[in-house]
Design a protein around this nucleic acid. Structure first.
Length: 567
RNA sequence: CGGGGCGUGGCUCAGCCUGGUAGAGCACCUGCUUUGGGAGCAGGGGGUCGGAGGUUCGAAUCCUCUCGCCCCGACCA
């Protein structure tokens, strides 16, 4: 492609709308343009990269035995009513009516449609298993779209759904998809890790998120360098503390603590370390108020708390509710003497002579001991893991890092097949619901994540498999006949060899072109400059500083070799 | 949805407080010079100041409403 003909509007300045690096660079490199909040045009360069990811996904999904289908974007409400999600899904589901006043929605995910499709055709275990996927536009009316393609409302997703006669076969396919996803992200040239994820009601270990590692990621990954355990922060297990302080229990005492509320304030005021405090949080749930306790230096993980309590929803109580439960304003709550269900994190169990609020404004108790001074109804793991925590699986230590969730695999079980009566007859002629799995990859998000992971201060540095073009030809001065002639020759040579080339034939100053080349991030650059007089051109990799000077006649061959060899 | 902020040529922004001629840099067009890391000079085109209403002799500027966008929180690929 000649740069003079390309629809490739690059920008020198940072657009004010973009916050994160991938969003900024995609706008500046002319890959995307915004149409509305969370809705984007993909320009040629952006689409090319997206297609690279799609191609890798297709090849690996097909290789894994999945078959591609294409389901509609517009879905009739009946299907969502049948699965029960029409009422559950909330405002993210964009609903509308057609001219006949029939209700529809834009598909944010396709479990209903695929389940309907399969149940109409599959009668026998002989027709199973099936793994069907599509690469389609999804629409989720996100509360707050942001970060460009990273979190749009309209986005392209690969979603696959599998159907099985047995749990065991569904688990086999889960492994198959785990391996397939690993291959996909490896082929994309990304550094990533698979982590255990929240499984919600289904439970078990059958949900993994694939995280591209990046400092700027929104998700926190907890991992153990010794045994390889890794999980997302919501999920990561915390091992209960062992032993105790061995300190002698003292008599509980009420102390005056005027205006001293936060953990930090209390520990400073009383001169005790935060690990001695029993942080007391009041929650409201669909099953009534609950008091949650955690050691003062730790934080409560609401997802774990919710799971432990088996409740539908959970929220921190407001000031009024806190007064109702404790009789004191927030900041002075403690478990002593409360008549509400008390849930405590394991970390509280080893506290001896601790400190808590006295449920009375401006007073705390000191020398509080669990068991002696208050009773805990339920002990459990309800805190967030911290850097340096002991690993739940081995003797190692946990460390925290950041990532971007680009893929998620999930064993669904029979949730949808039961709700929508997708059944088959097994070998014995017994009618049974199909066991399902679902497997998603955010295609646009993968592109964004690739940029988050591969860039420098000058621009994008594409991994070769995702690069929109392989080689950038940069004649320093197109008015110089020999430079132009050599550039044209290399352009033809590379193109004839099947290498994709962006040829910057613009009559621009060299600096403009160098900066554009770095911004766009094509892996290989050929600079055709004053050395043509000596029969030489320069070849430089985007991710390296030094250029290699080669004979003009050798340039094409070298580049073809590099692009093919991936070195 | 709650909290904060912003809408002025294609882009980045000034002007608004204290009402009176719509500005700068970049980009674009023409010419000359220049040509290895975002050139120089000269000339030129382009904005109903997000929209509607109001106050005023007069509104980008003050008031009211409205729309859009961005950032912080709960959701997710």
């Amino acid at each position: 492609m000649r740069r003079t003909r390309a629809f490739l509007p690059t920008m020198k300045e940072d657009p004010s709308e973009a916050e994160v690096i991938s969003h900024r660079l995609m706008l500046r490199a002319g890959m995307i343009r915004k149409v509305a909040a969370g809705i984007y045009n993909l320009l040629p360069l952006g689409l090319k990269v997206l297609r690279r990811v799609e191609t890798i996904i297709r090849e690996e999904m097909n290789r894994a035995g999945a078959q591609e289908v294409l389901m509609p974007l517009v879905i009739p409400a009946e299907m969502w009513k049948e699965s029960g999600r029409w009422d559950l899904y909330g405002k993210e589901l964009l609903r509308f009516k057609d001219r006949h006043d029939r209700e529809f929605c834009l598909g944010p995910t396709h479990e209903e449609v695929i389940t309907d499709m399969v149940r109409r055709e599959v009668r026998s275990y002989r027709q199973l298993p099936l793994n069907l996927y599509q690469i389609q536009i999804k629409f989720r009316d996100e509360i707050r779209p942001r970060f460009g393609l990273m979190r749009g409302r309209e986005f392209i997703m690969k979603d696959a759904y599998s159907f099985h006669a047995t749990e065991r076969d569904a688990e086999r396919e889960y492994e198959n998809m785990y391996n397939t996803y690993t291959r996909i992200f490896e082929r994309c040239g990304l550094r990533f890790t698979a982590v255990e994820a929240e499984t919600g009601a289904i439970g078990g270990r059958f949900s993994h998120e694939f995280m591209v590692l990046a400092e700027t990621g929104e998700d926190v990954i907890v991992s153990c360098g010794t045994c390889g355990y890794s999980a997302n922060l919501e999920r990561a297990e915390c091992r209960p503390p062992e032993g105790g302080a061995g300190e002698k229990e003292k008599a509980m005492e009420k102390v005056h603590t005027p205006g001293v509320k936060s953990v930090e304030e209390v520990s400073r005021f009383l001169g005790v370390s935060p690990e001695r405090l029993i942080k007391t949080m009041i929650y409201e749930t669909d099953k009534g108020p609950v008091v949650a306790l955690v050691r003062g230096d730790l934080e409560i993980n609401e997802a774990k708390l919710k799971r432990l309590l088996h409740c539908e929803w959970i929220a921190l109580a407001d000031e009024e509710k806190v007064r109702g439960v404790t009789g004191a304003p927030p900041g002075f709550a403690g478990p002593v003497g409360l008549e509400v269900r008390i849930v405590a994190d394991h970390s509280v169990s080893t506290i001896v002579n601790g400190v808590t609020g006295a449920n009375e404004e401006d007073y705390h108790y000191i020398n509080v001991n669990p068991g002696r001074d208050f009773a805990v109804d339920t002990w459990g793991d309800i805190r967030f893991a911290l850097e340096g925590d002991p690993c739940p699986r081995c003797d190692g230590r946990l460390s925290l890092s950041r990532g971007i969730e680009v893929g998620h695999i999930f064993k669904l079980g029979t949730k949808y097949s039961e709700a929508m009566r997708a059944t088959f007859l097994d070998e014995k002629g017994v009618e049974r619901p199909m066991v399902m799995g679902c497997y998603g990859i955010g295609v646009g998000r993968t592109v964004a994540a690739a940029i988050e992971q591969n860039h420098d201060e000058k621009g994008i540095i594409w991994p070769l498999p995702l690069a929109p073009y392989h080689v950038y030809i940069l004649p320093v001065n197109v008015k110089d006949a020999s430079m132009r002639e050599v550039s044209e020759r290399i352009y033809r040579g590379l193109t004839d060899s099947g290498v994709e080339v962006l040829y910057d034939d613009r009559d621009e100053r060299a600096g403009v072109k160098f900066n554009d080349a770095d911004l766009i991030g094509i892996p290989w650059r050929v600079t055709v400059g004053s050395r043509v007089k000596e029969g030489k051109v320069e070849i430089k990799a985007r991710d390296r500083n030094e250029a290699e000077i080669v004979d003009i006649e050798e340039a094409v061959g070298r580049l073809v070799q590099r692009v093919r060899g991936g070195t």
